[in-house]
Structures are given as structure tokens and as C-alpha cells.
Design a protein around this nucleic acid. Sequence first.
DNA 1: TAAAACCCTACTTTCATACTAGGAATAACT
DNA 2: AGTTATTCCTAGTATGAAAGTAGGGTTTTA
Lengths: 143, 143
Amino acid sequence: MLISTKGRYALRIMIDLAEHQTDEFISLREIAQRQEISEKYLESIIRMLVKARVVDSLRGKGGGYRLNKSPDQYTVGSILQLTEESLAPVACLEKNAAPCPRSGWCRTFSLWQGLDKVIHDYLQSVTIADLMEQGVAGDDYVI
Amino acid sequence: MLISTKGRYALRIMIDLAEHQTDEFISLREIAQRQEISEKYLESIIRMLVKARVVDSLRGKGGGYRLNKSPDQYTVGSILQLTEESLAPVACLEKNAAPCPRSGWCRTFSLWQGLDKVIHDYLQSVTIADLMEQGVAGDDYVI
DNA sequence: TAAAACCCTACTTTCATACTAGGAATAACT
DNA sequence: AGTTATTCCTAGTATGAAAGTAGGGTTTTA
């Protein structure tokens, strides 16, 4: 499985924030209830989003989260990179991959590089704003 | 990780068979030694290839395996499909996936469908013959 | 008779995933 | 100042899949 629940939930958080955007901050409890996901689990996920400054947060009463850019400024790929350990399709393409002794005569390395590229390019081509328009009744599910 | 060792090893078997093709059958021991992979593990993998009739096998002395089509007739995708449990990037796209209660209003379903498609299209666009030309010294790793 | 594919069961080790639990710090409101 | 609602932080648990390893036995063919 290339995309874990963390990544998928992170996207749902972003979409939820985008769809319920006002001047106010939105509490995690609210998001968790709407999305029907454990608040505690979401907490660990949204923290990554805060840390990377893709959402703003405010502590204390009346606190919560909110986007700091418009939804079309966030690509899906940029969000998934924050939560996924790695989006690499094979181990040898991971960030801290041990140098493969077979590189140099490996017949499949460029295959995986190419696969990695089409995946990244696709994920970078879709924004949160694109996702907001999806999934309503009668929709044809075409991007 | 989208692609497991099973899938990667299956490709290496196919490439090995393609590169050492004669009229004779090639024994598993030979492949395992060249590829430096456990014979026992390869056995379980190549059995899937035989079962799907992408390679021919012959038992007994002088037996082994050999391709039954030319290398450009095998796409990478067709091989990986045999060994990978699933190439779906998310659980809801797997073959026997439980029907998702969120489908219908899910904002991300078409995203995953699109991702699935670019992955499959890419893997179907590369053949074993393409891989044979890769990875030699001085190569630029460009497909 | 030897070498090979074929078939089966069971076990281990390691790792990531998917959470859960409990508390500390902070900010608004009364 | 106190209460409450919230984020922030650290730690732990449970499960399952991946990646093999081990060791047999059966069948086929030169």
C-alpha cells in the first residue's frame, strides 16, 4: 500500500478545513466528529501539518486550526510528503536508502525512477481545491 | 512500499531468463546464483510465473525454465500483477475491497483512481526488453 | 540413477501501521 | 484567580504483512 491512513486522513483534514473555512479556528474535535476518525489519532497527524506550517493553530479556549493559504495553493503531493514515511515505490529510492551494490548494473533502477516520477507528477498536479469539487452526488469521478 | 521483493525478484527472473536465453532450459539454481537470491525463495516466486504460463518449465534432469514469448511481449505490469498481492495505492481500490461507506460523498476517491491509472499505465508501457538495455556502464538511466 | 521441477507445512524475524493513554502547556472567559 | 477548552508532547500497545528460512516429500526426465 503506497498511501497509508495517515496520508489519507491528512488530506481529509485539509479538505475539511477548506470546506468549513471562516475567520475562526476549527477545533480538532469538530473535525474528528465530522470525519468520524479518532480525535487522538488525528491529533498526531495534524501536528505534522502544523509543524510544516501548512496550517495555523491556536491553543486554548476557542483555539483550533485553519488553513493559511487558499485551497488551490496546496498540492496533494505536498501534503502526503509530510505524513508518509516515504512515497517511494521501492526501498532503493527512499531518502536514506543504503547505497545499493547493484546500482551500476541494475536493470530495473530506471524503471523505479520512472515510476516514482509519474507518481510524484500526478500527486503534484492535483490540489485540495480540486478535491473539494469531488464526490458529490451525480459526479462522474473524473479528474 | 508499493512494490515488494516478490515483484522485484520476479522481474529479475524474467530479465535473467531473457538475457541467457538459448534453446535449453535454465535451472533455478543457476538463476539464484547469478541473482544472489535464495533458491528457496525464488522457487515460490517462479511458481507463480509458471502457473500463469508466462514461462515454460521442464522437470527432470536438464530441466528448468524458459520464456515462451520474446522479451518485448512481456510488460512489467503483467509480471508484477502475478506476484503482487495488489498494486492498488490505497485499500479501497483493492480487488476484494469492502464497499466503502464513504463512496458517494468521498472527496478523494477519484484522486486514488487517477493515481492507480497512472501507475498501471506506466507499468504497462515498459517491457522486459526495455529493461534488458538498462543499467550498463555509462548508461544515463533514462527510459 | 541423478538432477531437476513441483508441492507442502511450519516457523522466525523484523518492521510499519494504526492506533491508545495520560498528562503538560496555553489561552480565553468569568 | 480559577475554570474550561483547547493544543502540544511523550510514551506505549496491538496487529499484520513482508521476507525470508527450514526441511521435508513426490514426480518427471535425460
